[in-house]
Design a protein around this nucleic acid. Structure first.
Length: 591
RNA sequence: GGGGUGGUAGUUCAGUUUGGUUAGAACGCUGGCCUGUCAAGCCAGAGGUCGCGAGUUCGAGUCUCGUCCACCCCGCCA
C-alpha cells in the first residue's frame, strides 16, 4: 500500500504544491463525467480529491476507475495539493481551501450497499445502528463521543496518578453475593456446580487493597448488574472506582471536587464553581422531594403541614394528622389552564397522589376551588410562606411524606425546563444508614453493609437505628446521581454490630463476605472511597440522552446485542462439561 | 412482572380513523448523460412476506385475538 503522508483532516492552504498521499473512505462523490470529485474521509476529517485535474497523469484511465467508486469504498490516493479556484472553496470544512489533484489511486476495498444513510444516522432506529455499529462509528457523533471518553480516561489517569493513586486490577471472576443487584453468574468447569459472579463493583476488593496497604487506589473498571435496562443503565458499565486510607469525608470530597473541576476544564473548557454545595439528605428530600435534585431548577417545595392542620378542609386536615401537606409555586402561570391541571393530576396519580390541590394568586386575591375552606388568615399565611405574587399558582399534595416527595419532585421537573449548558453539582450527605424494607419490615442498608455510621449516632444503633446517619455521600449533577461513596467500617466489632442489626448471622456473614471480614481483623486502616458512573457523567457532559450514545457496543433494552447476537444458546457438550442441565420454562404456545 | 409508544421498500415515513382497483413519497440503490461540484444536477429503472401467527369478512396494511421485536417509564438497580 501507498505510504501515507497526511490524514484526511490535516491539509490546509499552506500545503498547496505539496505531493501528498491520503487514504480513507469515500464519503460522497460528484461525478461530472470529465471531472470527478470525491470526499475522502478518515477519523480526522474530510478532504476533497479531484480526478481529471493532473496534467501529468493518465486522466482517462483514472476517470474510468473513479466512475466506479461508491460510498464507503476504501481508497488510497496520491497527488498534488492545489488551492481551489476562487469561488469554489468550501467554508464548511477545515480543509475546504484546498483539494488534491489525484495522480494515482489504489482501490483498497469495496463496500456493500449500506444499510442506512451515513449522512443522516440520527434518524435510524437503535436496533439497526447497533447491528452495524462499525458504520455508525466511522462517521458522525458516536465517533466524537468515543473520542471524548478516551480524553476523559486520559485526564482521569493523569489526575489520580499525579495525586499518588495507583491503578490496580481486581478480579472479574469473583464471588456471588446475594445483596444488591442480581449477579451475572459464570459456571466453573473445574468446580462443577459452583459459580463465579461478575462484579457489581470492586467494593470488597478495593477495601482489601487498603488493608493491603496501598493507601490510594483507583481503577477504571467494568461493572456488571443483571437488572432491567434504562436509558442510563446498561448491564455492563464503566466505573471510576477509588479508595483511600487514613482520610475522612473532607479529604475524599476535596480530591473529587478537584477531579471533576479538572474534567470540566480540560474537556469542556468550563470553570465549575467550587466548592460544590452540600446538602443533607433530609434537607434535599424536604426542599426538592428527591435525593438527587436538579439545582438548575429554582422551584422549591415548602411544607405547610402546620397550617393545614388548622384548616377545616378535610383533605388537608387529615393529611396533616397522618402525613404532610407540601406544595410548590410556579410563577407567571396564567397559561396553566384547568385542563392542564387535570392532566398534571393524572400524571401524579401513578405516584400515589390521590389529588392535586391548587391555588392561584390573582390581582383580586387567592383563588381556587378550595379557598372557600380557608379563612383569610390561613390564606395569607399560605401566601406568605410561598411569597406569592399575582400570576403565581401553588400546587399542593396532601398525602404521606413519600407520596408528597415523589409527586412534587415529579411536578418540579415537569414544570421547568433547565438550561442544557448549565452544570450544577451538589453533594448529598448524612444519608440514613438504614431503611425499612417495605415488604419484610427488616432493616436494610441504604448504601451497603460496610458503610460506617456517623460517630455521633453510634449510640442510636441500639435505640433508634432508623435515625442513624451514615458516612455516605453522593455527588449529583443536574438531577442525576453520578457517583457515591462512603467511609467504611474498619472495626470488626462495629461491623458485627451492623450485621446483627441487619439480621445477618455470623455464619451468614462469614459465608458471604468472610474474606473481607477476616481482613478487617488484620489491622485494617480507616478508609473510604468513591465510585463514579463514568458513562452517566460523560452523558451529562455531552448533553446526550442515553448512555448508549457513548458505549461503543451497547445492548438493547432486552440486554441483547444485535451486532454479536449475544446472548445465545450453547452446544449441549458445553453444558455437559460444566455439569449443567437446562430447565427453561417454555412459553405457552398457541393451540 | 406492569404501563405507554411504535413496527409498511435498504433508510426515514405517509396510508390504518371510515376494510374495496396495481400500497405511495423522500433519500439511498442500479444504468445512462454530464469538466467545478461539495447532501451536485438531469433522464431511465429496479426494489414490498405491510414484524409474525390465527381469526372475522366476498375482500384485511386497515378490524379482533395472540405473539415477537425496538424505544420510554414503573417495579428492580446495596
Amino acid at each position: 500500500m501507498l505510504k501515507l503522508t497526511h490524514s484526511c483532516g490535516s491539509l490546509r492552504g499552506s500545503d498547496a504544491g505539496k505531493k501528498v498521499s491520503l487514504a480513507g473512505w469515500v464519503s460522497s462523490w460528484r461525478d461530472h463525467g470529465g471531472v470527478v470529485f470525491i470526499d475522502i474521509r478518515d477519523i480526522s476529517g474530510i478532504t476533497q480529491i479531484v480526478f481529471g485535474r493532473d496534467e501529468s497523469a493518465d486522466n482517462e484511465e483514472l476517470l474510468e476507475r473513479a466512475h466506479l467508486l461508491r460510498g464507503e469504498y476504501v481508497i488510497a490516493v496520491s497527488g498534488e495539493v492545489i488551492l481551489r479556484p476562487e469561488g469554489t472553496r468550501n467554508e464548511k470544512i477545515p480543509t475546504g481551501e484546498i483539494e488534491v489533484a489525484v495522480s494515482s489511486m489504489e482501490l483498497l476495498n469495496t463496500c456493500r450497499e449500506l444499510p442506512f444513510d451515513m449522512k443522516n444516522m440520527d434518524a435510524v432506529s437503535d436496533e439497526v445502528r447497533l447491528k452495524y455499529r462499525y458504520l455508525e462509528m466511522r462517521a458522525g457523533r458516536l465517533k466524537d463521543n468515543i473520542i471524548f471518553k478516551h480524553k476523559l480516561f486520559q485526564t482521569t489517569r493523569n489526575f489520580f496518578s499525579d495525586n499518588g493513586f495507583l491503578e490496580i486490577e481486581t478480579p472479574f471472576l469473583t464471588k456471588s453475593t446475594p445483596e444488591g443487584a442480581r449477579d451475572f453468574l459464570v459456571p466453573s468447569r473445574l468446580n462443577p456446580g459452583n459459580f463465579y459472579a461478575l462484579p457489581q463493583s470492586p467494593q470488597l476488593f478495593k477495601q482489601l487493597l487498603m488493608i493491603g496497604g496501598f493507601m490510594r487506589y483507583f481503577q477504571i473498571v467494568r461493572c456488571f448488574r443483571d437488572e432491567d435496562l434504562r436509558q442510563d443503565r446498561q448491564p455492563e458499565f464503566t466505573q471510576l472506582d477509588l479508595e483511600m486510607s487514613f482520610i475522612d469525608e473532607e479529604d475524599i470530597k476535596n480530591i473529587l471536587q478537584d477531579y471533576v473541576s479538572l474534567l470540566f476544564k480540560e474537556l469542556l473548557d468550563i470553570e465549575l464553581k467550587t466548592p460544590f454545595p452540600e446538602m443533607t439528605y433530609a434537607d434535599a428530600m424536604l426542599r426538592f422531594g428527591s435525593d438527587k435534585p436538579d439545582l438548575r431548577n429554582p422551584i422549591e417545595i415548602k411544607d405547610i403541614t402546620d397550617i393545614a392542620a388548622r384548616t377545616d378542609f378535610k383533605v388537608f386536615k387529615q393529611a396533616a394528622e397522618k402525613g404532610v401537606v407540601r406544595g410548590i409555586k410556579l410563577s407567571d402561570a396564567e397559561e396553566i389552564s384547568l385542563s392542564t391541571i387535570a392532566a398534571l393530576t393524572k400524571e401524579v396519580a401513578p405516584l400515589g397522589a390521590k389529588g392535586l390541590a391548587w391555588i392561584r394568586h390573582r390581582e383580586e386575591g387567592l383563588h381556587s376551588q378550595i379557598t372557600k375552606f380557608f379563612s383569610q388568615e390561613i390564606l395569607s399565611e399560605i401566601s406568605e410562606r410561598f411569597d406569592t405574587v399575582p400570576g403565581d399558582i401553588l400546587f399542593f399534595i396532601a398525602d404521606t411524606e413519600e407520596v408528597a416527595c415523589k409527586s412534587l419532585s415529579y411536578l418540579r421537573d415537569r414544570l421547568f425546563t433547565p438550561d442544557e449548558n448549565e452544570f450544577r453539582l451538589l453533594w448529598i450527605v448524612d444519608y440514613p444508614l438504614f431503611e425499612k424494607d417495605s415488604d419484610t419490615g427488616a432493616w436494610i442498608p441504604i448504601h451497603h453493609p460496610f458503610t460506617a455510621p456517623n460517630p455521633e449516632d453510634v449510640e442510636l444503633l441500639n435505640t433508634d437505628p432508623g435515625s442513624v446517619r451514615s458516612r455516605a455521600y453522593d455527588l449529583v449533577l443536574n438531577g442525576s446521581e453520578i457517583g457515591g461513596g462512603s467511609i467504611r467500617i474498619h472495626s470488626m466489632e462495629l461491623q458485627k454490630k451492623i450485621f446483627n442489626l441487619l439480621n445477618i448471622s455470623d455464619e451468614e456473614a462469614d459465608a458471604k463476605f468472610g474474606f473481607l471480614l477476616k481482613g478487617l481483623e488484620f489491622g485494617a486502616p480507616p478508609h473510604g472511597g468513591f465510585a463514579f458512573g463514568v458513562d452517566r457523567l460523560a452523558t451529562k457532559m455531552l448533553g446526550l440522552s442515553s448512555i448508549r450514545d457513548l458505549i461503543p457496543f451497547p445492548k438493547t433494552q432486552r440486554a441483547y446485542s444485535p451486532l454479536s447476537g449475544a446472548p445465545s444458546t450453547v452446544e449441549f457438550e458445553q453444558l455437559t462439561e460444566l455439569g449443567l442441565k437446562l430447565d427453561v420454562p417454555t412459553k405457552k404456545k398457541e393451540d
